[in-house]
Design a protein around this nucleic acid. Sequence first.
DNA 1: CAGCATCCTTAAGGATACTG
DNA 2: CAGTATCCTTAAGGATGCTG
Lengths: 111, 111
Amino acid sequence: MGRRGPYVCGIDAAMDVVSGKWKSLILWELHHHGARRFGELRRGLPGVSEKMLAQHLREMEEDDLVRREVFDQVPPRVEYSLTDSGRSLNEALRAVGVWGQQRLRRLAEPA
Amino acid sequence: MGRRGPYVCGIDAAMDVVSGKWKSLILWELHHHGARRFGELRRGLPGVSEKMLAQHLREMEEDDLVRREVFDQVPPRVEYSLTDSGRSLNEALRAVGVWGQQRLRRLAEPA
DNA sequence: CAGCATCCTTAAGGATACTG
DNA sequence: CAGTATCCTTAAGGATGCTG
């Protein structure tokens, strides 16, 4: 993660921004549930560590895919949601997801 | 690269198969030029090492994205081309590429 | 030409403990 | 609750040299 260019083309520039074990899943999660808190996101992504989740979210915020809102409360409340750019990227990934489902079906078939 | 499951969803399964610094670019290259030889591919991807190109191609062949054809000649001639599955994946990545081009334009804008 | 083998560096990711 | 900080392991990628 985190080269941010120089990019040789659009795919390159897009893949860079989603490379990271959980990023496409975070996109998906936020798209489906709207604004989510850190802990909710964590529970929605079984296996993710706090470190990676925080790191990915910070990078995605920097890449303008995710918006972070802090509510000044005790206990603290922080909500993450998609920006327009994040939403459109998730949209662009739909066809890829469909392709992946076909792959899953093929993998499930008896060899 | 190379976990090949278990996958939590389609995006996960698809991203796994394109994760690798040059894979989406190889897909693109093969889609545009049709069958290509190892050396042509190498020249078409400035910066790629022989090792990585060979490794990616082997994995993509295993994942049924790429077909490898050996012609029994001297000097040796080996051609790579997309399978149906590879072609459809590349197709699915088009929207992602378009998104990436927008990102490139945004990045190019004066900060 | 089309590669494989080897060694090495860097980066990604995970585990654990701690804090405002 | 929402993180940081630190340490450690693994995996990705690169450089170089050699081979059928």
